[in-house]
Design a protein around this nucleic acid. Structure first.
Lengths: 203, 203
DNA sequence: TGATTTAGTCAACGCATGTATAGTATAATA
DNA sequence: TATTATACTATACATGCGTTGACTAAATCA
């Protein structure tokens, strides 16, 4: 059950007020800020409580507590992630010589044990993922059908869509100009590196 | 100028209350906790303010802000960028009620005076930019031919490709299912918000 | 020695504030 | 189709709450 636009606005105002003033706004202050009556503001706060985004201490002035305030919004909550120029066979993925830099992204964009950014080469997944994009990858040795994955074939890393069909692994490009790879499970030289969980493109 | 024993107790109670409840205690609640009259509690809070340990918003209920409560360190190489749920006409783009959260991204990804992330609605730029993507936008009032821009048309913000052709502004979607907009320069209700300099997609 | 600071009691004023009652209107849902 | 969720207006009530004035008493300061 998500929030409506208006409810999101109200929640943001409450958060901003706490950050700026140090304490939550009163019902009337919320109303004044949006130019609505206290009752309308009151109903919105009750809706936020019902949906679990806020905990109220009934009948207490400014008795609004925003749940997961730190987790979602405040910065200490950034995660440092290595940016890899390439993935090489043989060595561990996060070998020092592959790390181009360490960048800082919101923690909830990078959920998982081992997460890294990979500079994409080639257009086998165009237009979804383009040459030069940064792919956010979570290390994992298996994947579900349809996942976009990073796989290592001999000495070359590729990004393709992953399928498993009667004991065969299928790596299918979005771009039809490229060939679909099909191989038996356990084929030597093949290794699943991880799943692409995000794409960043600088224009 | 240090604190007395009693003042330290009061300050600790205020801190504990904020941590536990999510908002500061009222003067009366402080009094009740220590078994003293509101006036005595009031005087203590004023003493804490005088000594700089607390900032008060006079005449406001629970108007107590504890200073240096949450000192947060931010990575030097990171930049904090507001994430907007939408862009509204009339108000400034970075109006508080539009800010969903503040996220932290590498400084060199966000070069420019005013940069923000915008949650994309609709697929007019598919497959380049999809519904739900986050667009990194640099505020600017003009653009070059071919730039992907955020523009405000009356009350609605859209992302389109920008062209200028014989004193006309052309806003062209990548998705052919959408119409190309063509209007004279200076048409009222039209406003260029900024240029899309990056796209972030979570899969 | 008198003034200031600290720590209280007690009663009261008046605006702030959460909440209720009673409506209107629109869009989504079953 | 009836019903629920959303988003409001308008008025009002009772209590919450910051604040004040007046006063006591001990400790500390100049």
């Amino acid at each position: 059950m998500g929030l409506t636009d208006r409810q999101r606005q109200i929640l943001n105002f409450i958060k901003q007020s706490i950050l700026k003033e140090g304490f939550p706004p009163s019902i009337r202050e919320i109303g004044e800020h949006f130019g609505i009556y206290p009752r309308a503001a009151f109903d919105h706060v009750k809706a936020l409580e019902k949906k679990g985004f806020v905990k109220r201490s009934a009948a207490k002035s400014r008795g609004i507590e925003v749940r997961d305030f730190m987790e979602r919004d405040v910065q200490p909550d950034a995660r440092q992630v290595p940016l890899l120029g390439r993935v090489t066979a043989g060595r561990p993925v996060l070998a020092v010589e592959n790390i181009e830099s360490i960048v800082c992204i919101p923690r909830d964009w990078a959920r998982g044990e081992e997460v890294f950014l990979l500079r994409v080469k080639g257009d086998s997944m165009a237009p979804f993922i383009m040459d030069g994009d940064l792919a956010l990858v979570r290390s994992q040795a298996s994947a579900d059908n349809g996942d976009v994955v990073v796989a290592l074939l001999e000495d070359e890393a590729t990004i393709k869509r992953f399928y498993r069909e009667n004991r065969h692994v299928v790596l299918k490009p979005d771009n039809a100009a490229w060939e679909t790879l099909r191989m038996e499970e356990g084929t030597p030289g093949f290794r699943l590196i991880g799943k692409v969980i995000g794409v960043y493109r600088r224009i």
